[in-house]
Design a protein around this nucleic acid. Structure first.
Length: 259
DNA sequence: ATGGTCGATCGTCGA
């Protein structure tokens, strides 16, 4: 089973690029972030024509996540538990059949947190604590778990072309990285890191200053696997080609293949 | 030091 995650930065602006990619990616499950659409405005027919069942958790203007599946979606849950008053649409999870078992897949859009020193950064860290708590609950269930999305965290220096340039950014703050480690140390495998431990693996290049042309990228889109999912990991990768296409998102797709 | 680019929306915020 192939699972793809992609921050598409606006589903309406990306409909052509997204459907063109999915026609050749052969993905069973797709996690989208930053759909920037309400549920009623999501162009679900364009994805249903490709064979996908669609579940969205959107809001007006910003954020928004979605799950697409060619093998069905069950037990769809919207919103990260732990703060009922949170109005930001950043989490959707569901169960999908994978062979003889089920896999739980979450599409997540972790808060950016910039600028540091503001309530945006406080919200990011609080959201990461909620993510850790909920993940702890899910891990105890021992169903294979896949957390896929834009984590807005650069885990280590190797994950940036110019790590020193990100020193003042919420994506590379010690607190953000510590929270990432607290999460992964619950027993999660960073799938792309596991398969491609070397430098130069990036998933985001800013629109400004010719960042992509200079390969001035960072790795912030991740797929984390529970032990039961990691046992079935065959390969993981980053598809950077869409970043060089027409009207690209500033992020590119990241994928795993599970046995 | 500043401006540099996008998307959603329609003045301005978020990234």
């Amino acid at each position: 089973m192939k699972i793809v995650t992609w921050n598409i930065n606006g589903v309406k602006a990306r409909l052509e690029a997204a459907t063109a990619y999915l026609r050749q990616a052969d993905a069973d499950v797709v996690c989208l972030q930053e759909i920037k659409s309400v549920d009623e405005g999501f162009p679900r027919e364009a994805f249903e024509e490709l064979g996908y069942t669609v579940a969205t958790h959107g809001q007006k203007g910003f954020n928004g996540v979605a799950l697409l599946s060619k093998v069905g979606l069950e037990d769809v849950t919207r919103g990260l538990p732990g703060e009922d008053a949170d109005p930001q649409a950043r989490w959707i999870e569901a169960l999908v059949p994978a062979g003889a078992t089920m896999v739980r897949v979450a599409s997540i859009y972790l808060p950016n947190g910039n600028p540091i020193g503001t309530d945006k950064f406080t919200y990011k860290l609080a959201w990461m604590r909620r993510l850790e708590a909920h993940t702890r609950t899910r891990l105890a269930e021992e169903t294979p778990l896949v957390l896929a999305g834009d984590f807005n965290v650069i885990p280590d220096r190797v994950d940036a072309k110019r790590p020193d340039a990100w020193g003042g950014d919420a994506l590379f703050q010690p607190e953000s990285r510590q929270a990432w480690r607290a999460l992964t140390h619950l027993g999660l495998t960073d799938a792309v890191r596991a398969c491609h431990p070397g430098p130069g693996v990036y998933t985001f290049w800013d629109y400004q200053a010719g960042a992509f042309q200079k390969d001035d990228g960072i790795r912030i889109d991740h797929i984390l696997l529970s032990p039961q999912a990691a046992d079935r990991l065959v390969e993981a990768g980053v598809d950077r080609a869409p970043r060089g296409g027409e009207k690209p998102s500033d992020h590119v797709p990241v994928w795993i293949e599970l046995a």
